[in-house]
Computed example of a mutant assay.
Amino acid sequence: MTMASATALQTRGDWLTMLRTIVAPVLRHGAAGTLKSAMPVEAPTGGEGRRHFTHLEACGRMLAGLAPWLELEGLTGEEAAWQHEARGQAQALIASITDPASPDHVDFGLGLQPLVDAAFLAQAILRAPTILWNDLPPAVRTHIVREMAATRWITPASNNWLLFAAMIETLFAALKLDFDPMRIDRAIRQFDTWYVGDGWYGDGPAFRFDYYNSFVIHPFLVDILRVLPREPEWQEFGARQTGRAQRHAVQLERMIAPDGTMPAIGRSLTYRCGNLHLLAQLALLGKLPSGVAAGQVRSAMSLAMTRTLAAPETFDDEGWLTVGYSGHQPGLAEDYISTGSLYLCTAAFLPLGLAPNDPFWEDVGASPTAVRLCEGQDVVRDRAIEG
């Protein structure tokens, strides 16, 4: 499949084809133990400063997006056959990166960055507990726990990194292992104080106008509180957080223009359609906002995914993602961006964890909000929320 000739993403089959194109080299080389030798490291500084981290980035982020589809039961035909293959590859990849004897072993305790992508891997396991945990051999599960625990020496910065530490502890709690509730409690309480209104959190004490509310903040809060509504204070916050997340999802859907473009604002634009993480997550969980139809969301997301993934030069000659938002645009990369970072775009594909007959795939009713507005249709006005 060449991106220059790719048609617009519209159907479940289109989404599957694109997802397979994105994840194929990571799964193939990860399962074979050749990820470090095969994956390029494109980065603003030439890649050396990110080489220790980029492979874990690719694996953790890719699996966080792929996990619900890996966990889905009842598929048939060609999709089921690929799922069977991908399950085996994902399990072999996890075994490889956590095995000290593997050429692809990643030291989760080396430097600060592994806290981030250990958390994405933890999120993947929480989203696919059967395939990515229960079905793994005991030795592999032991390796995972050891590597996850190796990140505990890292003191997270006072921003979205608090949620990475909290996600790892949430995994430990879900697995009935010893966990540190303080790392979870601090993240929850701190973000409640950083809420600035109308569905938006500050990423730290200062507000930044970017997509981190959808890249990380809302999705991590949703999953942490979904898995672990342990303390009364957490449950109280969770009730507020649901409304905030749904409000932010409304805004994301309205940001998608009729041509699939979204405002080019803030950090990490090279995550491409990863900025749809929250919208995809709420669709997966059946928690889309009232008045926002599943088919409307699928249509809007498809426009944005086509815009960011189907442009020429999105992939190199070996099928790896290149740095860019729509095509190859290396000038967009911050100093923390490298090839592995880019696989956060798979977060947009979370709804593939819904059955093929789910309304998300079968609803052919409402068009995206921006399309209806530009066609002159009457649309319910947008409203802010309180709290």
Rank of each mutant, 00 (worst) to 15 (best):
M1E: 13
M3N: 07
S5R: 12
T7A: 13
Q10A: 13
Q10T: 12
T11G: 07
L16A: 14
M18A: 14
I22V: 15
P25C: 08
L27A: 09
G30P: 09
G33Q: 09
G33H: 08
G33F: 09
T34D: 12
T34R: 07
L35D: 02
K36V: 08
S37M: 12
V41P: 08
T45K: 11
T45P: 06
G47R: 09
R50Q: 11
H52W: 14
A58F: 05
E71D: 11
A80H: 10
A80Y: 15
A81H: 10
H84F: 03
R87G: 03
A90K: 00
I94A: 06
I97K: 00
D99G: 04
D104M: 00
G109F: 02
L112R: 11
D117K: 01
Q123C: 10
R127A: 10
T130E: 07
W133S: 03
N134V: 09
L136N: 08
P137S: 13
V140D: 04
H143K: 13
I144N: 01
R146Y: 12
E147G: 05
P156W: 02
N159Q: 03
L162H: 05
A165E: 04
T170H: 01
T170N: 00
L175F: 13
K176P: 11
F179G: 01
M182H: 13
D192P: 01
V196Y: 01
G202F: 00
G202M: 01
G202K: 01
D203P: 02
G204Y: 03
G204D: 09
P205A: 15
P205H: 13
A206E: 14
D210R: 00
Y211P: 00
N213E: 01
N213K: 01
F215T: 03
V216L: 10
P219C: 12
F220I: 03
F220T: 00
F220C: 03
I224N: 12
L228Y: 09
E233V: 11
W234P: 13
G238I: 03
G238P: 12
T242R: 14
Q246F: 10
H248C: 05
A249E: 09
V250H: 07
Q251W: 05
Q251C: 04
A264E: 12
I265P: 00
R267N: 06
S268K: 04
T270F: 07
Y271K: 01
L279M: 14
A283L: 04
L288I: 11
G295I: 02
Q296K: 14
R298Y: 02
S302T: 04
A304P: 02
P312D: 15
P312M: 11
D317H: 11
V323N: 06
S326M: 10
G327M: 08
Q329G: 04
L332I: 02
D335R: 14
L342F: 11
Y343I: 06
A347H: 08
F349P: 06
L350N: 03
F360Q: 00
E362V: 04
D363L: 07
G365I: 05
A366P: 05
A366Q: 08
S367C: 01
V371R: 02
L373E: 07
Q377I: 11
V379L: 09
V380P: 03
V380Q: 05
R381M: 05
R381E: 10
D382R: 15
